[in-house]
Amino acid sequence: MLRITRRVGERIILGDNVIIEVTEIKGQSVRIGIEAPRSLPIYREEIWLDVKRENEAAARSAGEKLPDVSAQLKRTGQ
């Protein structure tokens, strides 16, 4: 991993159109501003990882057949 030291207000440019700026440092927290093309989704890593794991679990969870749940849907009025 590339490691770069920056001060508050200094920026890093990725390619020609992604800008990352350190905007504030408070104790153990660093506030970061990101300017990126609108089409680029941006995630907090822990949320991205959670969703990736859930997607993988869903893809692994079932073979070709899913159970008939019509009785459960009726029972609970769903």
């Binding site: 859930e54 997607n55 679990a57 869903a58 969870s61 079932a62 899913l66 159970p67 749940v69 459960q72």
Partner: peptide, 9 residues
Amino acid sequence: VTVCASNVL
């Protein structure tokens, strides 16, 4: 929404 299936409903 994605479904994580199981042996038990």
